[in-house]
Amino acid sequence: MAECVIGDGSKKETPRKTLPPNHRFLQPERAVKNITDMAIWEKSEAYMEYTGFIATLNEAIKGKPLSVDCKISDNVKKLLDMLEKIDRIIDDYPPVEQPQRFGNTAFREWLGRVKHNTTDFLQDALDPTLHVTVPEIKVYLEESFGNATRIDYGTGHEMSFIMFLCCLYKIGMLEADDNVATVFMIFNKYIQIARRLQKTYRMEPAGSHGVWSLDDYQFVPFIWGSSQLVDQPKIYPPAKFLEEDIIDKYADDYMFISCIKYIKEVKKGPFAEHSNQLWSISAVGSWTKINQGLIKMYKKEVLAKFPVVQHVLFGSLLPIKRFPLNH
């Protein structure tokens, strides 16, 4: 693994209070090479950090609409500017004329350009004292938008972006005060880019999708989106999320409803047939139960699946080493 050192600690340490001054950053690598490695992953520091991060942000946004007045720090603004630049690059690579219906090859050109620019983008966004972190964290960002070979996108790419966000907290660029804005502004902007890529380049869903699958592409917006709806009388009982007027009225305020709206735009036919799992969820009596159930389902159907985890990257910030019990 390539590595570099954060410095001698002589500069002010405020942006990196979570890390020791001599911390060694690593080029992230795959570590779950076969099924037996899954047990190492599920006891790893990366697994605990990642699931803890999802739970923390899940709690931070509970009962809040996207329009809530939340703190938007300068660092959040810088990250939004970076995502806006990534979004705009799509304009430079329109789909090409090609015989096959799915997987437009212009996506490869788009992703190549993004990867060419990620170092500069991150250096613009980060405090200069954190530039040493770029070789480690940029890989998570680059893996967030889909696979260039297969021109597909799925929950593993979504996971890579959330790991990228988790790393930004670990290096101290984002802090607890940013939790709501991280979900409502940064993650929400990322989901909008992912949807635009899916539509523009007709990306294939990554991996196999059984009846358990919530959606062809995403999972976490349903978790965080259901947390937003806890104790919200407007969309209660939860079955209301299937009603057209509710979708039209609340898609801009609640991520869960926005996901349903997007599915209805891109899929034809009865909802109960093309999105059976979501149809089943609509019968659950409360958003709290839905939220808890989705977290369990995510751990079982995404984080415990080798086809997803074999692509996960581990470095110094999200290490594969065992989580210390006295942590």
Rank of each mutant, 00 (worst) to 15 (best):
P324T: 06
F306E: 03
K299V: 01
S282N: 00
M297N: 09
V308P: 00
F306D: 00
V284Q: 10
K300S: 14
K296H: 11
L325D: 10
V309P: 00
T288S: 11
F306W: 01
K321V: 07
G315D: 03
G315H: 05
G293T: 01
S282R: 09
V312Y: 14
L317P: 03
S286E: 00
V308H: 05
A283V: 02
F323W: 14
I320C: 01
S286H: 07
I281M: 14
K300T: 13
V284A: 10
I290R: 11
F323D: 11
L303S: 03
H311W: 05
K299E: 08
K296P: 00
P319V: 06
K300M: 13
M297D: 11
Y298E: 06
P324S: 11
M297H: 15
R322Y: 01
T288F: 05
L317I: 01
Q292H: 08
I290E: 09
P307G: 12
Y298F: 15
K321S: 11
L313R: 13
I295C: 12
L318A: 05
R322P: 01
R322D: 08
L294Y: 08
Q292M: 03
L317R: 05
I290T: 12
V284N: 04
K299F: 00
F323A: 14
M297I: 02
R322E: 12
K305Q: 04
I320L: 12
I290N: 10
S316P: 00
P319S: 14
E301D: 09
Y298I: 06
V309D: 03
S286F: 08
A304N: 13
K296R: 13
L325H: 09
P319I: 05
I320K: 04
I281C: 06
Q292L: 07
G315I: 13
V312P: 00
S286M: 05
K321Q: 01
Q292Y: 06
K321D: 02
K300W: 11
F323P: 01
G293R: 02
I295F: 13
L313H: 10
K289D: 15
N291P: 06
L303T: 02
T288N: 06
V309Q: 04
L318M: 13
T288A: 12
N326A: 07
